[in-house]
């Protein structure tokens, strides 16, 4: 009887150990499956991010080329046409008028050279990494003010730091898109741009005094450019908030925690448990 009891206890103990071992093996298999699923998801996110980044770069290049062609057509060609006209008139004029025309033509040529020099420094994504986001936005603001279409004011707060090349690029693209919207659709006279740099927070705000739009434009999917801004911001771990109402202009705020690591945005991150 005692031997029987002992035998049962031994068997129970062995079964118990076996149960624990099976549980551990089952957990290992389950964990490996989870790792595989996680890896596939990360790769998908990385691919999406790379695609978006490429799209952003292409859009910026298109924007730059558009700007260059517009400047050449509207500005430089016009100036050189005036030079041609002046020089043609100078050949038939008297000495005094000839000299005036030549001086005027020289001034116009100098202006054309300056404009071409400015064009050669036109914005591309390489400039952002060289000059930094603040300087790049400063140059863009200066260009807008020079055009006279709208009065743009840029303010910066705090000591500027790099958010990372890819994040700077995406933030600048969001800024460009917002700027284009203001110029094309808002009918605004003033645009306030603000860059705020805090140790754990970066904020970009754009505020215009234009016509504004209905808030449901985003939900109805008609404002695809606006939706694009939100999606791009989310891709780099930022939040984009767009606030507008008819007659009250538009307010766009992009916030980002520069310390937050994103695997697919930064290319490397420490293995995180949570």
């Amino acid at each position: 009887m005692h031997d029987e009891g002992l035998r049962i206890l031994v068997l129970l103990s062995i079964a118990f150990f076996f149960g624990i071992t099976c549980f551990i093996i089952y957990f290992i298999i389950l964990y490996r499956n989870k790792q595989l699923i996680n890896k596939q998801e990360q790769e998908k996110l990385q691919a999406t991010f790379r695609q978006e980044l490429l799209k952003t770069q292409i859009e910026m290049q298109e924007q730059t080329l558009l700007h260059i062609s517009r400047e050449i057509h509207d500005n430089i060609t016009q100036v050189l046409s005036f030079v041609k006209l002046d020089l043609a008139m100078a050949s038939a004029a008297d000495e005094k008028l000839k000299q005036t025309k030549i001086n005027a033509s020289r001034d116009l040529v100098a202006q054309a050279i300056n404009d071409l020099r400015d064009l050669s420094k036109s914005l591309s994504f390489e400039h952002i990494s060289q000059l930094g986001l603040v300087k790049t936005i400063e140059i863009e603001t200066g260009r807008i003010n020079k055009s006279g279409i709208i009065r743009a004011m840029l303010t910066t707060e705090g000591e500027a730091y790099s958010l990372g090349e890819q994040r700077d690029l995406v933030i600048f693209r969001i800024f460009q898109e917002a700027l284009n919207n203001t110029l094309k659709h808002a009918g605004a006279r003033q645009l306030k741009i603000s860059l705020q740099y805090y140790p754990e927070l970066f904020i970009l705000t754009l505020e215009d005094d234009g016509d504004g739009f209905l808030p449901d434009l985003l939900e109805k999917g008609k404002g695809s450019g606006l939706k694009n801004m939100e999606n791009r911001a989310a891709l780099i771990g930022a939040q984009a908030a767009i606030d507008s109402s008819p007659g009250k202009g538009c307010y766009i705020k992009v916030t980002l925690n520069p310390l937050e690591q994103r695997l697919y945005a930064d290319g490397y991150h420490p293995n995180r448990f949570g």
């Binding site: 290992i28 964990y31 989870k34 790792q35 996680n38 293995n271 995180r272 448990f273």
Partner: peptide, 14 residues
């Protein structure tokens, strides 16, 4: 902890 490990798997071999 086993549950938490399953919810947030890391890339290191278990």
């Amino acid at each position: 902890l086993f549950k938490e490990m399953l919810m947030y798997p890391v890339r290191i071999n278990i």
